[in-house]
């Protein structure tokens, strides 16, 4: 399915369709909007959490409209419960579609996780076992989302703290299977790889080497917190509350060496810093992105010019 062709057919949006520029983007926070607009911040794109713009009107939509006039956006759902055992909430999906129709985002993504069960929304990205049964369920849900919104979505690999004894697929193979069976693309969260690898005792580089990276259309980067598990061993928490750590920057470079230049997002959701700090973090990612071009900077600048 070609996302660009489908979006250009949507008549409802007042915004032009664009691909995400191959640059660093930043997760949009309401408190940064004034700084961003006043400084005409040089940022590749902004990612928004869909649920935050599902209200009927007011400030959130006014802010997003202004941002969208100047920047491409990526729409990232956090509450679809793609990995849920029950049905997708049709009302939620309809609201999701409405947002896409209005703002015409360059990318649409969701998580390999569940958050709703028996009509209760748990406000967290909860883990699922990797079995044939859950694979079929996830693929069915992605199919449903893609057919309702009329375009391809990206699915993000999770940070997890537990595993299920019944899992008989590896996470890497599971991700490859859902993409193969549903036609979705993948959002590769490098920090999640590092967090899950540490928590479950495997090497993040092994995960990256085995991953179907040719399906990756966007990368996420974030900071994490350190805690300890039941045996006092290190347990990492996907807290999005600080800078990206050196290990994750290194894995990011490894990833880019395999994917080629890919739009990359800095996520910082807790202990939200000043706009200046966040912008610096994005510049760091931009610098690494430039170097990932085989033909270095010329390609980057042509990308930037078309953005």
């Amino acid at each position: 399915m070609n996302a660009t062709i489908l979006t250009s057919q949507m008549p409802t949006s007042r915004f032009n369709s664009t691909d995400l520029p191959i640059r660093a983007g930043v997760g949009l926070k309401a408190e940064h909007v004034d700084d961003i607009l006043q400084s005409s911040a040089d940022i590749g794109f902004f990612e928004i959490h869909a649920e935050n713009y599902m209200g009927a009107g007011g400030m959130p939509h006014a802010q997003l409209t202004k941002i969208r006039e100047k920047y491409p956006i990526s729409l990232h759902g956090v509450g679809m419960s793609i990995g849920g055992s029950g049905d997708i909430d049709a009302e939620h999906l309809a609201r999701f579609k409405t947002l896409i129709d209005i703002y015409n985002p360059s990318m649409v993504s969701e998580h390999l996780a569940w958050s709703t069960h028996h009509d209760i929304f748990y406000n967290d990205l909860l883990p699922l076992p990797y079995t044939d049964e859950t694979l079929a369920k996830v693929v069915e849900h992605i199919d449903q989302v893609q057919s309702v919104i009329g375009r391809q979505i990206l699915i993000e690999n999770p940070s997890t703290y537990v595993t299920f004894k019944e899992s008989h697929w590896s996470e890497v193979d599971f991700m490859a299977q859902i993409a193969k069976r549903s036609g979705c693309a993948l959002l590769f969260d490098v920090n999640n790889v590092f967090v899950s690898a540490t928590n479950h005792g495997y090497k993040p580089a092994d995960y990256i080497n085995a991953y179907p990276l040719h399906l990756v259309k966007e990368i996420h980067l974030a900071g994490h917190a350190t805690d300890s598990d039941d045996h006092g061993e290190k347990l990492l928490i996907d807290a999005h509350d600080r800078e990206v750590c050196e290990d994750v920057w290194a894995l990011y470079k490894l990833t880019l060496s395999k994917t080629g230049p890919t739009p990359s997002l800095i996520e910082w959701d807790n202990e939200v810093p000043t706009w200046a700090t966040l912008e610096l973090e994005a510049k760091k990612a931009d610098a690494i992105l430039i170097n990932s071009y085989p033909d270095s900077k010329s390609a980057y600048h042509s990308q930037k010019a078309t953005a």
């Binding site: 595993t163 805690d227 598990d229």
Partner: peptide, 18 residues
Amino acid sequence: KGVGEKDGTPAPKRFGVY
């Protein structure tokens, strides 16, 4: 049961994160 560490050993601290 069956949710926790690699072999499915219950791990209340890990589950506690959720």
